[in-house]
Design a binder for these strands. Structure first.
Length: 862
DNA sequence: CTGTTTTGACTTTTT
DNA sequence: GTCAAAACAG
């Protein structure tokens, strides 16, 4: 942001003024200038965390358009997420104006391929001999998996031996490595490979019959189109003369092949530079490669210079983002990786405060710690939108969300159970897909009897068989259903009516906007009415939420019509299929952001919480027995740490519930407690304040039940006139954490059976589930938190003040106290001097505990 | 064919 | 502990 901000200040100027050389290079360091102004030819930019690579990329594009007088159509920029693409588009628009920027092509590999395939797919025949039409649909993982199940059972293979899920993954991996079904068939040697190849082929013929592609096909197929369709490659090759790829360390083989086909210059014209008026710039950081499970391979980046011969190398090594302490933490961790290129990252900021580390009792306690810190930060004038809470697995968000809701802190969750993966959204989208592409059998099967039309499995099977035999689409088969033997006349009529309905909508879809199409189909199918019935008859307690979600989808469609370049069904479906995290954070909305570490790639926040630093969770269990996987986890940790600008908090829980079943990693009696993450121990000791993990090998039981324990402290908080911190013991009272969370804030399904997680509680729009609208929900309105956005954050003072003492209620021996978790007790001992006191409390139920009043919420009752 | 009950998968990360 | 798919009963 340090670098980005100056661009934003220029919005008042006209595009002509903006393009001037001096402004494009304003405030850049020498290496950044070199990258922005690099001449023709290939160029590798090694950009460490926080080194301003987004700024460099956007200005590079602007530079090409203005200083180097290149046409906007010749620019192709590949980003890792749709959100990054949007961000880049916006920034470029500000520099060169909308008229120019809209002509560039910026997007993810997937969305770019999807868009281009619509034009060229009909000229293409797959190596297996299939043809697709331009109205193909994109299958997500669920669609693809159910197709796979069908294939495996059709081939009479045992789904215990050939687990559809695993097979799907293997085939996906093959495609990411650049294998088509046909190519793999030639290489398959062993028995199992032979079967796999059969499945691969059959799966693809099924996809083709449905006129569908999965995610991986988008890239692979477009690459094939370039290779095999005459003239296509030349056309695009001629058009895209300036290609930029961000996050290049996470490129896989299939994507690299594609880039190579597009970028590599045509054969040399005698005596002329083949790269004349052509450029290829790839940007990345090997230490941030975290997608190898998707077949990303950072070695592709390492060999870039030999793959593209006269490649120039530029290193951006100055970090403008984080404090020196945060960088030191990051560096001390990543240094433990061996598969690594040594790299310097020079810090451009002050030392900053220590990184706070806290050990909580359990995941709820951990969340409470975060909330308490949020309140303290608030008191210092920091706003919620400066804060992100990161975690390794999506499941971890639950406890945090619960506590945030309880404390009325608005939040925005990125990812999670994705909006479009919900049952009701998939239903409605399946209708749209079927309308768009009547050959889509998966969607057909999904909606044929939703809502109930009296069409069961037997009927559908027979119909599908008929469709298959006659080589027609399932929708067409419906129209002919009354003539099919074995189908009762009455059933046939229902089928015909369904087919006619879809056909009618199909025609309609060409003339009316998507949102109206949605309205029509929801009305005619009575989809919402049925849900309403379910809701009132209490059949489905989630029904109300589902209605909300469907309404949300209609709103999304309306929004789409307003903003999209081509607001048709076609681009709506493509977008919905490929977007998961669209504008997660609304401009101006003051809320905390929650997301996984993976989702945080490329982002930065002044204040970062990183939760769940426990062995088995982070690093994740599945990486424990592979050194390569462990190094990837470590890179993930590196990514997490380097998101932080000013303050970083690391937390872990002594106990953690997993699937309601007890602690993670936990078989056996002795492993009731979690083990602190090895990454904590890898941090140079002086950099952490609060908790520091015991030496390796020391058994966790050393801090056992009867022994007193100390909740992590604030690194001996330097006394500094009792400013910032304040009454957090007070309004937080002992009752804010009742043993069962039967809170009354959400009437729906919160009250009942012990500790309900509140998913869907209060309806569908549980913050952040919608990719489009993440407004915090009504009960979470910022009531308790009044963060004043007008009050500027105090960046300079902040980092040192983080260690300031927190006010707490002073106690002495004999005082009766109430604790949220341990109940009622009596202080039996006071340890340590003032401001750092610890209280030894004898609880009626929970025994004797040593507590730090700056964390433990002790309410004096006598 | 529908409605209910039971099983079982899920929790690594995402385009 | 949650959800959806599969299995079962009517």
């Amino acid at each position: 942001m340090v670098l980005g901000s100056d661009l934003e200040m220029q919005t008042g100027s006209t595009p002509e003024q903006m393009g001037s050389n001096s402004e494009l290079l304003d405030k850049l360091n020498a290496q950044q200038v070199e990258a922005v102004t690099a001449g023709w030819g290939p160029c590798l930019v090694i950009a460490g965390a926080g080194s301003g690579k987004t700024t460099v990329l956007t200005r590079r594009i602007a530079y090409l358009l203005t200083e180097m007088q290149q046409e906007a159509e010749t620019v192709l920029a590949v980003t890792f997420t749709n959100k990054a693409a949007q961000e880049m588009k916006n920034r470029i628009e500000k520099i060169v104006g909308w008229q120019t920027s809209r002509r560039t092509m910026i997007g993810t590999f997937h969305s770019i391929c999807a868009r281009l395939l619509r034009f060229d797919i009909e000229d293409y025949t797959t190596p297996e001999g299939h043809k697709l039409k331009s109205n193909f649909v994109i299958y997500d993982e669920t669609d693809s998996l159910s197709l796979m199940k069908g294939v495996i059972s059709r081939l009479n293979l045992d789904d215990k031996v050939f687990v559809p899920r695993d097979i799907r993954y293997q085939i996906s991996a093959l495609k990411n490595d650049g294998y088509t079904a046909q190519l793999y068939a030639q290489e398959a040697k062993s028995y199992r490979e032979g079967r796999l190849s059969e499945i691969f082929l059959a799966y693809h013929s099924d996809l083709a019959r449905n006129n569908a592609m999965d995610f991986d096909d988008l890239i692979l197929t477009f690459t094939q189109v370039l290779k095999t369709c005459p003239g296509v490659r030349t056309r695009y090759h001629h058009r895209f003369r300036h290609i930029m790829v961000d996050e290049f360390q996470d490129t896989n083989r299939a994507q690299f092949d594609l880039i190579r086909l597009l970028a590599e210059p045509a054969e040399e014209v005698l005596g002329q530079d083949p790269w004349l008026e052509r450029t290829l710039m790839v940007v990345g950081d090997v230490d941030q490669s975290i997608y190898s499970w998707r077949k990303a391979d950072y070695k592709i980046m390492l060999s870039f210079q030999s793959d593209f011969k006269p490649a120039r190398l530029i290193k951006l090594e100055e970090n403008y983002r984080s404090t020196a302490t945060i960088l030191d933490v990051a560096n001390s961790i990543i240094a433990n990786n061996s598969e690594r290129i040594d790299k310097v990252l020079r810090c451009n900021r002050g030392k900053g405060g220590k990184v706070q580390c806290f050990e909580a009792q359990d995941e709820i306690d951990e969340a409470y710690y975060v909330v308490e810190e949020l309140k303290r930060l608030n008191a210092r004038g920091r706003t919620l939108k400066e804060v992100v809470i990161l975690y390794r697995t999506n499941a971890q968000s639950r406890a945090i969300e619960e506590v945030l809701v309880r404390n009325h802190i608005p939040y925005t969750m990125v990812g999670g159970k994705r909006f479009y993966e919900r049952q009701e959204i998939k239903d409605v989208l399946a209708y749209l897909k079927l309308i768009y592409n009547p050959a889509d059998g998966q969607s057909f099967n999904r909606v044929i009897n939703v809502p109930r039309r009296g069409l069961g499995k037997t009927t559908v099977d027979r119909l599908n068989q008929y469709a298959l035999d006659s080589g027609i689409s399932p929708v067409q088969a419906c129209l002919e259903a009354e003539g099919i033997r074995d189908i009762a006349p009455k059933t046939g009529k229902s089928l015909r009516e369904f087919g006619e309905m879809v056909n009618r909508w199909h025609m309609l879809s060409k003339t009316i906007p998507v949102s109206q199409l949605l309205d029509t189909l929801l009305k005619e199918t009575k989809y919402i009415d049925k849900l309403q019935e379910d809701a009132t008859s209490a059949k489905d307690e989630l029904a109300l939420g589902r209605i909300e979600n469907v309404r949300e989808l209609v709103a999304v469609a309306q929004e789409f019509e307003k903003t999209a370049d081509e607001p048709d069904l076609d681009s709506f479906l493509t977008r919905i299929s490929l977007v998961s995290d669209l504008d997660a954070v609304r401009e101006g909305e003051d809320s905390v952001t929650l997301m996984t570490l993976h989702a945080a790639k490329g982002l930065e926040f002044p204040i970062v919480f990183l939760a769940g630093l426990e062995e088995g969770l982070f690093p994740h269990m599945r990486s424990l027995d592979s050194e390569t996987a462990m190094e990837e986890e470590r890179r993930l940790m590196y990514v997490g740490v380097t998101r932080a600008e000013d303050s970083l908090y690391l937390t872990l829980a002594r106990k953690r519930m997993v699937l309601g079943r007890g602690p993670a990693g936990g078989s056996g009696f002795s492993s009731n407690y979690t083990v602190p993450s090895r990454f904590l121990r890898e941090i140079t000791p002086g950099l952490l304040a609060g908790y520091y993990p015991p030496p390796a090998g020391e058994r966790r039981e050393a801090i056992s039940h009867d022994d007193p324990f100390v909740t992590g402290g604030f690194g001996g908080g330097q006394s500094r006139g009792g400013g910032g911190g304040n009454n957090y013991g007070n309004n937080y009272g002992g009752n804010s954490r009742p043993t069962n969370y039967g809170g009354n804030s959400r009437p729906n399904n919160y009250g009942g059976g012990g500790g309900s997680s509140g998913s869907y509680g209060g309806g569908a729009n549980r913050s952040g589930n919608s990719p489009y609208d993440s407004r915090p929900q009504q009960p979470a309105k910022p009531r308790a938190m009044r963060m004043d956005p007008n009050q500027p954050p105090d960046k300079t003072a902040h980092s040192s003040e983080i260690n300031a003492p927190v006010a707490f209620e002073r106690l002495s021996v004999g005082d009766k106290v109430q604790h949220a978790k341990f109940g009622v007790g009596t202080v039996v001992q006071v340890i340590g001097e003032k401001d750092k006191e610890l209280y030894n409390v004898e609880f009626d139920e929970a025994g004797r505990r040593l507590l730090d009043p700056r964390f433990a919420k002790l309410i004096k009752t006598s």
